[in-house]
């Protein structure tokens, strides 16, 4: 997997919680149907406006809440990566372990307007705002975790090692 992702930015605030990303009722729908309900409470219609390859920029404590598979839902929607001021620990795990790149980065909220184009190297931490021509530096997750993302998540590893029946 490439060490950079690039796309149009959608901005979200602080404390974006798992109930907003996957509402309780959607949790028990088929995995393919869950993404349709992403952010339906706080930003109805967003799933129709966003496009594959887009980037999420968020404030503090992104992904606070439950163990819901937020990374999986965002990956299915085609989000290419998340840059946030800080992540909830469980939210972070649930992105890394399914192979969705994330980057904690102080100052990210002020550095981007919605719709700006971001180019993010999630292994070095360099974030470019291609629209404004500005750059800032995030704190990449440790190498061991980057390797999980690069491998496509922990299930890809299990599949390769024969723990899961082949599809």
């Amino acid at each position: 997997m490439a060490s950079t992702f690039k796309g149009r930015v959608w901005k979200f605030g602080d404390d974006i919680n798992t109930d907003l990303i996957i509402p309780g009722f959607a949790l028990y729908l088929a995995p393919d149907e869950q993404p349709r309900h992403c952010f339906s409470a706080n930003r109805p219609g967003w799933v129709n406006e966003m496009q594959r390859g887009d980037v999420l920029v968020a404030g503090r404590n992104f992904g606070v809440g439950s163990a819901r598979p937020i990374g999986d839902v965002l990956l299915r929607l085609g989000i290419s990566g998340i840059v946030a001021e800080s992540f909830n620990g469980l939210g972070l795990r649930n992105c890394i372990n399914v192979g969705l790149p994330v980057l904690p980065c102080k100052g990210i909220v002020d550095a981007f307007e919605e719709g700006d184009i971001a180019e993010v190297n999630w292994t070095t931490g360099a974030v470019h705002n291609l629209t404004k021509g500005t750059t800032l530096q995030g704190q990449p997750v440790p190498k061991a975790l980057q390797d999980i993302v690069a491998a496509g998540g922990v299930e890809a590893v299990l599949r390769k090692e024969g723990y899961l029946a082949s599809r």
Binding site: S66, A67, G89, N97, G153, V154, E155, L164
Partner: peptide, 23 residues
């Protein structure tokens, strides 16, 4: 004790291990 995601839980089920970041 820690909450983890569904994929990670499958990993723990299969391998009996996981990773933690020390905060």
């Amino acid at each position: 004790a820690r909450g983890v995601g569904p994929s990670e839980m499958t990993y723990i089920l299969c391998k009996g291990q996981t990773w933690f970041m020390v905060g």
